[in-house]
């Protein structure tokens, strides 16, 4: 009985969150719509740019339906949006959605590789720090981590270029090889960009995991594992890590938004043809509809990921699971 009641609560809770997500997404579309339409001066001229002919302007006017009311314009824009029509770039004539979709995989690959690298750095550091909490090693790593968080990402990117490509000459600073030209060559072009994100990101993950590990290591079942005569590494990896990793995994999801910002800088610096670079190039070129499309896709992706993580958290929260278990 209690379990069904609990499930009922859970469903209501998730439903409310889903509704909230929808409202926020709607608000995001409204704001991005207004971005272009609240421009000072005639929108058609702004979008068309200085080289636009009278025909161009007329075409833009017609396409945007500028003679109608703002709400009507928004509604029809939203309608086209649902069908995947974000307009065309006034620079290349390419459909905005197509341009974004072709760049999206690069950004996603960058984010995934940098998160994995960050995890690879954070995991051993957190295990060592938690196992020997309060020791010199722990204090050294924790202090180093604190200092690292004061390094802006573009400085970190510059430092990795300086070290690995100027001083050590291991990898070129820029240049991108698509996946079709070979997996290895493709991965190689991601090493430095991903590293410059990961070298900051690991601290965030390490701090969360370290503090959760320290709490876990005080649990009775860890004492029990020691009483089994298991070696420390086995206790850390098999008994302590899993119950402690929950918050860190959530944080990894929530960090996606921040990393999207980092990606803009890193992609520009390393000349990776991703979403971030597309956005910056569009801004330089004053390609309004492209900017609008990028912002829309990035923001909707961001809120959706955040909400998904939030809902997963609710679903997997050990306390809620335990309550359900007690009910059965």
């Amino acid at each position: 009985m209690t379990a069904t009641w609990g499930e009922h609560l859970l469903v209501t809770h998730l439903g409310r969150k889903l509704l909230r997500l929808l409202l926020v997404v709607l608000a995001v579309t409204a704001v991005t719509f207004l971005m272009v339409h609240l421009l000072p001066g005639d929108v058609a001229y702004t979008i068309g740019g200085e080289t636009a002919t009278a025909d161009d302007i007329r075409a833009i006017r017609e396409a945007l339906g500028l003679d109608r009311s703002m709400l009507a314009q928004y509604r029809s824009w939203l309608g086209r949006l649902v069908h995947g029509d974000l307009g065309r770039s006034y620079l290349t004539g390419e459909p905005v959605l197509q341009a974004i979709l072709s760049r999206l995989p690069v950004t996603l690959e960058l984010l995934v590789i940098s998160q994995l690298l960050a995890l690879a750095l954070a995991l051993p550091a957190a295990l060592i720090c938690a196992y020997r909490s309060g020791s010199h090693v722990d204090r050294l790593i924790s202090t180093g981590g604190f200092a690292t968080l004061s390094i802006p990402s573009f400085v970190m990117a510059l430092l990795t270029i300086y070290l690995f490509s100027v001083k050590l000459r291991w990898l070129p600073a820029t240049g991108y090889t698509p996946l079709q030209a070979g997996v290895w060559a493709n991965l190689k072009s991601f090493v430095l960009p991903a590293l410059s994100i990961a070298l900051i990101e690991w601290v965030v993950l390490m701090r969360v995991l370290r503090s959760d590990l320290i709490t876990t290591l005080q649990q009775h079942y860890i004492l029990m594992a020691k009483a089994k005569g298991l070696p420390p590494w086995r206790i850390l990896l098999l008994h302590a890590l899993r119950p402690s990793a929950f918050t860190m995994l959530t944080v990894m999801g929530l960090q996606v938004g921040r990393l999207l910002g980092e990606a803009v800088i890193v992609e520009t610096l390393f000349a990776l043809p991703g979403m971030g670079r597309l956005l910056v190039t569009a801004i330089y070129a004053r390609d309004h509809l492209m900017v609008q499309g990028c912002v829309l896709v990035i923001s909707i992706g961001y809120v959706t990921v955040n909400s998904a993580v939030d809902m997963l958290y609710t679903l997997l929260d050990p306390r809620i699971r335990r309550e359900a278990a007690v009910g059965t």
Binding site: A27, R258, V295
Partner: peptide
């Protein structure tokens, strides 16, 4: 929440642009 729905740096770039 709506303001926070945009990744900070992206919003910064765009407003700065306009």
């Amino acid at each position: 929440d709506v303001i926070l729905a945009f990744p900070g740096l992206v919003l910064l770039l765009v407003i700065r642009f306009y």
